[in-house]
Design a protein around this nucleic acid. Structure first.
Length: 323
RNA sequence: GCCGAGGUAGCUCAGUGGUAGAGCGCGGCCCUGAAAAGGCCGGCGUGGGGGGUCCGAUUCCCUCCCUCGGCA
């Protein structure tokens, strides 16, 4: 009659993901979801982790962040380097914290790799390889990247089969891991531990028709400029931005304007185009992940309406999995 | 009106007497320590209209239309 712990063992704790390309309105929907699902939000975004990148990354409104706890926003200085593995660590901590409060973690964002690394895990290998990496890049610039690729073919044929000879970034990464550990990255990468076994994971993606999405992107960019994007970038540029932080869309485009390379309108057009390209890549990523369920939305839908659909879908997913 | 330059992909422009390319855009894809990054694939075309020469014209000739610059 009374349910003891063991009889509930098969009822796993839930972790939700709300993803989608940029500018679909995830943040607003997430606030409503968090309230209704007794959840706390974990940002799944590679750029919102940085303090000071507020307008460029369209962080959720401060008022909303006070109402619902948001994790992994503003966690490091823009002078610092950040990467997937740090995110993975931070995310696991956040999950622990939230579950201890008997709440549900709701991941919200558009960084596909970060989502994957939370759900599927990441292969472990100690860091401290920046020297090797720098050395490899130096080699590449002298001897050319094909030579590095040929070395990879010898050292790790499996990885070389999956990495394009022009994809220098991944070639260097694979060689760097090999030099640091003596083991091929292709072998190490198979050792990853996800949380699908421990938790019930459900993922929903907001899906908008391309023309509508592109219109939203244009509106967002216009709004960013009105909100003071140029000032923000000017301020950020005064301090030393880390390599990773400086890659946020909008920084390079505005810096070009600040340097006088082109006018304000050109900067705006560039940012719109680059954001479109980014959204396209995001869509490719999400389409590939068959765990994700899609919700068609239009520009006219209210956040409440969308949130309602998302909740229904999440319940459906969980029912099917009997959780 | 005259002179000159030019009309080729969505845009900017190459090129050739045997029906066309490049960059960007656009579309698709890959991705496990830079991921808002990086890489790969795809030409998406009434060659301004009409006529002529030629086996064959986007390419040569004529004509018309349009754009830009100069002169009036």
């Amino acid at each position: 009659m009374e349910k003891n712990r063991s009889s509930r063992k098969d009822v796993k704790e839930k972790i939700f993901f709300l993803v989608g390309p940029t500018a679909t309105g995830k943040s607003k929907v997430a606030i409503i979801l968090a309230k209704k699902l007794k959840a706390e939000i974990v940002s799944c975004d590679s750029m919102q982790v940085y303090k000071g990148l507020d307008i460029v990354t369209s962080k959720p409104a401060l008022a909303d962040r006070r109402k619902i706890s948001h994790h992994l926003i503003d966690v490091i200085s823009p002078k610092e380097q950040y990467d997937v593995s740090r995110y993975r660590r931070n995310a696991m901590n956040a999950i622990g914290k939230i579950l201890r409060k008997h709440k549900t973690p709701l991941f919200v964002g558009g960084t596909g790799l970060y989502m994957s690394v939370v759900i599927d895990g990441i292969f472990k290998h100690k860091s401290g390889n920046s020297r090797i990496r720098a050395k490899l890049y130096r080699e590449a610039s002298h001897k050319g990247s094909t030579q590095l690729f040929e070395r990879l073919v010898r050292v790790d044929p499996e990885a070389s089969a999956r990495i394009h000879p022009h994809d220098l970034r991944r070639i260097v990464r694979a060689l760097e891991v090999f030099e640091a550990t003596g083991q091929p990255i292709s072998k190490l990468q198979k050792q990853r531990e996800g949380l699908a076994g421990k938790y019930e994971v459900a993922c929903v993606c907001l899906d908008m028709e391309k023309p509508a999405l592109y219109r939203r992107i244009e509106q967002r960019v216009d709004h960013m400029f009105k909100a003071g994007l140029v000032e923000e970038v000017k301020k950020l540029s005064r301090g030393a931005l880390s390599k990773t932080a400086s890659l946020a869309l909008g920084i390079r485009e505005v810096q070009g304007y600040l340097k006088g390379l082109y006018g304000l309108d050109e900067a705006k057009q560039l940012l719109k185009r680059n954001t479109r390209l980014y959204a396209k890549r995001q869509l490719t990523w999400f389409r590939k992940d068959k765990r994700i369920k899609w919700i068609k939305i239009t520009a006219g839908d209210s956040a409440y309406g969308i949130a309602g659909k998302v909740i229904k879908l999440l319940r459906n997913i969980c029912k099917k999995k009997r959780c």
